[in-house]
Simulated assay, not measured.
Amino acid sequence: MSCYYKYSPNQQTTQVQKCKTDINIKVNCHDGNDDGNRETDAFRAVNSEPQPIEEVNTFFKVFFQDEQFDIGGIYNSTNSTFVPRRSGVYYVAGTVTFLANDGTVPYRVRVEIRVNGVPVAADNDYWAEIDDQFLYVNAINVNTILQLEAGDLVEVFITSTTPGTIEANTPELSTRFEAARFR
């Protein structure tokens, strides 16, 4: 016995052909106080104010002061660190929006996710042949899936070959740090 789903041309509705089998759905409801039953740990934090990067070719920790949510108490907005309380597999991502002080000079920006001070994932963007009639803002995203131990220290760092500013998070300019644990 099988079911199939057919999307409408506008992708807004789904038509389902009737299945010829019973489906059982298990729902685990609890009051949120039992960490053993919590299936997901997750957080999302954004940068709420510009962060100048004045020294070139030096790594700086990126700050994400505005905690949007923190399920499981795994994020510290005071020092912008993610510390898993439970060992497991986590999706971790950091996006940094960088604006160079001089938008006409070619430059390189590197953003890293570090675990216990060791880089584990990075993205490296290079900007060249820049048209000085436009303002270029560079959004660098790094993401990975990691096997983390409870108590690991996870942070985001940036370096650039030109001075600039990490822009505050807005709907148009995304500077964020987020993670979620797989069950």
Rank of each mutant, 00 (worst) to 15 (best):
A150P: 07
I113W: 02
V109L: 07
V111N: 06
V105I: 14
T144D: 12
G117K: 01
Y126T: 13
I113G: 04
V115D: 01
A139H: 05
V111Q: 03
P119Y: 00
S160H: 03
D123H: 13
S160P: 15
R108L: 10
N101A: 08
A150S: 10
N124M: 03
V154L: 04
E155D: 10
A121W: 01
D125H: 14
R114W: 00
D102E: 11
V137R: 15
V154D: 06
I140V: 15
R110M: 13
R108K: 14
Y107C: 03
A122L: 15
Q133T: 15
N141G: 10
E129S: 15
V142T: 11
P119W: 00
V142E: 07
I113D: 06
I130G: 03
N101R: 10
D132R: 08
D132V: 05
P119I: 04
Y136F: 13
A121D: 04
F157W: 14
W127M: 15
E149V: 11
I145N: 13
V154I: 06
D123E: 13
D152F: 05
P163L: 03
D123L: 12
A121G: 04
T161D: 12
I140R: 12
L153H: 12
Y126D: 12
N143H: 10
Y126P: 09
L148M: 05
A150D: 00
R114C: 05
D102S: 10
A122V: 08
T162N: 13
V137T: 14
F134H: 11
A150C: 08
F134P: 09
I158D: 07
P106A: 06
F157K: 08
N101I: 09
N101E: 11
L148R: 02
I145E: 12
L153M: 13
